[in-house]
């Protein structure tokens, strides 16, 4: 059977992109919630949408999950337009929200079984899948207790399990760990990493750089409704100024000499910290620079206590991209305050 080339190509394009958004705009009365967000999630990859509170992350997810229609721009999920074919999109996605949307009067089992039925699984299938997910998410002990009695971490896990009931190929997680204590967050990361290994396409919003760094293949940084940077975690870090070579010498007296040698290798002005006996210099060559430094210092018989390439963290990247820290909020948010307390504890 002959199939036109254009159809084949179209299929390849559709299949290879789990999520695609082009110039999404959504304005509320005075607020520009999103102001031209474009992003793409290649199939089987994880995209981290990183930004502070109020950056437009949740609005973006709501457009992509068919909850709200954009004022402008278009978006597709697995090739289906979110505005024109919402039913097709809904049968292919799983969504877990910022605050766990579990029914607290229902037990964990009843919650998942209900969602299974609403995905139109057969009764027996919905029941089996509910039990399976409860075991997988270590909720089997609490399966027959109303969700009301669950801890915050358990509710989040149940909510995430709800997103997976129908094994959807595309999953949206809107700040899955906001408000969780560090231990529950670690648990969630494990669960999400497991999904990723199974090849699910995932769009994850977060305000935690560590989370994006750990889980995402690609990251888009959003701020004030706009995508301000994108790339892998490494690319974003490089954008901030790339790697730096840091050398700690054993003898303070040789610090000046070491500085001279390192500046000849480095690509910019050096910094010296006499207290820690450390010279830091920007380098462009990565490991080559490191090896060159070791050789030169050795030639001059300067004893080195510590040497290494220091890469900027995503925090550095965010700060330099937006001019403010990632976890700064524009408005008071009690959930975030609790969050910070939990982190500091």
């Amino acid at each position: 059977m002959e199939v036109p080339l254009s159809v084949v190509l179209a299929k390849i394009v559709c299949v290879s992109e789990a999520v695609r958004a082009e110039g999404l705009v959504k304005h509320y009365k005075e607020v520009k919630a999103i102001d031209g967000v474009s992003l793409s999630v290649p199939e089987g990859t994880v995209l981290g949408v990183l930004g502070p509170n109020g950056a437009g992350k949740t609005t973006t997810v709501r457009v992509l999950t068919t909850l709200i229609a954009p004022d402008a721009g278009r978006a597709t999920v697995a090739g289906h337009d979110v505005v024109k074919e919402p039913d097709a999109v809904r049968s292919l996605i799983g969504v877990s929200g910022q605050y766990a949307a579990v029914d607290e009067y229902l037990t964990g089992y009843e919650n998942l079984e209900m969602i299974g039925r609403l995905y139109h699984l057969k009764a027996a299938q919905a029941k089996a899948r509910a039990r399976e997910l409860l075991a997988e998410f270590r909720l089997d002990d609490a399966a027959d207790r109303p969700a009301k009695t669950y801890s915050g971490g358990m509710r989040r896990r149940l909510d995430l399990a709800g997103a997976l009931v129908a094994r959807p190929p595309v999953i949206f997680l809107d700040e899955p760990t906001t408000g969780l204590d560090p231990r529950s967050r670690g648990d969630m990361w494990e669960v999400i990493a497991g999904l990723v290994r199974e090849g699910t396409s995932l769009l994850l919003t977060t305000q935690y750089l560590e989370e994006a760094d750990r889980l995402a293949d690609n990251i888009v940084v959003v701020d004030r409704g706009l995508v301000i940077a994108e790339g892998t975690a490494d690319q974003l870090k490089d954008q901030v100024g790339g790697a730096r070579l840091a050398v700690t010498v054993a003898d303070t007296a040789r610090l000046g000499e070491a500085r001279g040698l390192l500046e000849s290798i480095g690509s910019g002005a050096s910094e010296v910290d006499e207290h820690t006996r450390t010279v830091t210099v920007p380098v462009s060559g990565g490991t080559e620079s490191l090896l060159a430094a070791v050789r030169r210092l050795d030639e001059h018989q300067i004893t080195v206590q510590d040497i290494g390439i220091r890469r900027p963290t995503l925090d550095d990247a965010f700060l330099s991209l937006t001019g403010h820290k990632a976890e700064e909020t524009t408005e008071d948010d009690p959930a975030q305050d609790r969050e910070r307390e939990a982190q500091n504890a």
Partner: peptide
């Protein structure tokens, strides 16, 4: 208020 409607609306119901 509890986000249950949000969940329902993302399901193929």
């Amino acid at each position: 208020q509890k986000g249950v409607i949000d969940r329902f609306r993302t399901l193929p119901m």
